[in-house]
Amino acid sequence: MIAIHIEHCFGEREEAFHLKVHFAAKARRICFFGHSGSGKTLTMQAVAGLFTPQRGSITVNGRTVFDSKNKHYLPARMRRCGCLFQDYALFPHLTVRENIAFGLGKGVFPGREMLRRVGEMLDIFEIRHLAEQRPGLISGGQKQRVALARALAPRPELLLLDEPFSALDPLMRERVRAQCRDLLARFETPAIIITHDPADVALFGESVVLFEQGQASKPIAAEALRQSGQSKNELLRCLAQSLCAQYSPSPAPEKTLSGNFFEKKLDEAGPLA
């Protein structure tokens, strides 16, 4: 269960970028879908505590982590949000084992529980043979597994994946995507997947939130989208249709269906609920 109500304004007057996100979702896997620069990553950072919006509140699993009215602001280190960054952000000076252990203990000497957890993660993600390597020497797919293991090791309450496959080449992407889904299925942790690739939505999403120019839609059940269209293009069109349905109560405009659905300005379509 996650409820996000945030607003933030960058810049002044016409060139300003308004971030306006209001939604609550119950699904275990939520996809943030939208173009680059539509505010997906910013919203993710607000959830993780890496960015402080001007107004609003964020509740994760019933715990309020941010509330501008009560000046309540939980720092990132206490939010228990595991993050998978776009370029994985592995610590280059630490070995794979040390990377995974980083979130587990504060002490210099590892405890038994910590060693056990690191070993468990190394086995689940099949990276035991890489344990003593540094991240600079391993492949993109392996890096992603290490980053995922590192994020999941401290048992976070929420996992945030920021365009997890965009750093991989297309040939590899399909394989890693399937791998990643199977691995995630072994954890109960709820996850938010940020993406601009409909294939990710098709594979991961239980619920989709559409982002456009800093505004977010209400969550849409991805199951309905999936049933109505199997191929990627059809899914994309379904997403477009949902987007139009969200913002224009008038009969669905044909122009937007034939493509270019993002050209429609969201703020022209009326305020968000």
């Binding site: 960054f85 610590f91 280059p92």
Partner: peptide
């Protein structure tokens, strides 16, 4: 030093002091 690395450390529960001694300074 890449700020994403410091952010990553923060989301993993590291205090500012630990981010500095374990990530920023070694790099």
């Amino acid at each position: 030093v890449d700020h994403t690395l410091e952010d990553a450390a923060r989301t993993l529960g590291a205090s500012e002091w630990r981010v500095f001694t374990r990530i920023s300074f070694p790099l």
